[in-house]
């Protein structure tokens, strides 16, 4: 490319930067706007991007602290955001740990062992993984409704049901972990097994410690997916104080009572940690996502 004229390069560079900056501003505008609105007085969207009348009211309400306005009226928090966040985190941590346990063990068998029915099972998992859970919501609802009559903590409106229902989405993670296991040389495990280690011991004490990075990535991936899960949670959870954040947050923007400011604070508060985690781990997460698609 050294042959291209330097002058045209400069104008082209300028053009590229301008185009990129223009696009970046389109991308960032909604996000900056929400941060700005969260510090602005009132629940309406008037005013400039830099708030003129600064107020921490929405933030206090988002943290669940009643807020006293200058004129003496006390505003109660409209929704239990912190409780929703806690519900989301609780469900996400438990279900991610369970997903991790299930997918690691099966990925080990798929990566290392030869057994009957391996190829069809792997392919079948890929096909079933593409079915959206929304479509079988009626069946899932019926299942947990009936199960709840026998085992109350697995019924409708329990977090147990939501955690259990998420265990169906393991195929992607199995493929990701399997790919990683296959990239690790098996000779260490073989050496251990020659020395008398059982299959399980070779897996537990040799392979697992070597695969901590991928386990962390899959955990985070499953965690984020669980936090963002909407359809199942919207059908399985009913009470306001049982909701997860993904289901609860929309109540701020109800048809006739839009709490734009309160929503903004809650959104920044709950969205920021997830966004940061994602950006920090994006290299591995996107690697896993695309690998799940490309290779499998």
């Amino acid at each position: 490319m050294a042959m291209v004229q330097p002058r045209s390069i400069r104008t082209r560079k300028l053009g590229a930067h301008l185009a990129l900056l223009g696009f970046v501003s389109l991308v960032v505008f909604p996000l900056l706007l929400v941060i700005s609105i969260s510090f602005r007085e009132g629940n309406f969207a008037t005013g400039s991007l830099i708030p003129e009348r600064f107020s921490l009211e929405h933030w206090a309400l988002a943290f669940g602290i009643p807020w006293e306005r200058p004129d003496g009226t006390v505003v109660q928090p409209p929704f239990p955001v912190m409780l929703w966040l806690w519900n989301s985190i609780k469900v996400a941590v438990v279900s991610s740990l369970m997903i991790l346990a299930l997918s690691t063990t099966s990925a080990y068998a798929f990566a290392r062992m030869r057994f009957q029915g391996k190829a069809p099972i792997l392919k079948g998992m890929l096909i079933f993984q593409m079915f959206p859970a929304v479509l079988s919501l009626v069946a899932l609802y019926a299942l947990f409704d009936r199960l709840g009559q026998l085992v109350p903590w697995l019924g409708i409106n329990t977090h147990g049901a939501l955690i259990l229902a998420s265990l169906g989405a393991v195929a992607l993670h199995i493929w990701t972990i399997k790919g990683y296991f296959e990239s690790i040389d098996g000779s260490l495990e073989e050496a251990a097994m020659v020395d008398g280690a059982s299959t399980w011991q070779a897996f537990r004490h040799i392979l697992l410690p070597l695969s901590v990075p991928i386990l962390v990535v899959v955990f985070i991936l499953a965690f984020i997916m669980s936090i963002m899960e909407y359809p199942m949670a919207s059908v399985l959870l009913l009470d306001e104080n049982k909701l997860t954040l993904a289901v609860g947050a929309q109540q701020y923007l109800a048809e006739h009572n839009q709490r734009w400011g309160d929503f903004a604070a809650a959104a920044v508060l709950s969205g920021l940690p997830i966004t940061l985690v994602f950006l920090l781990c994006q290299r591995w997460i996107t690697g896993g996502l695309t690998a799940g698609g490309v290779k499998g």
Binding site: M228, A246, L253, S270, I274, T275, F278
Partner: peptide, 11 residues
């Protein structure tokens, strides 16, 4: 991509 979808859609 990093911001949770349920938040950006509501925004």
């Amino acid at each position: 991509y990093a911001v949770p979808a349920f938040i950006s859609i509501l925004i």
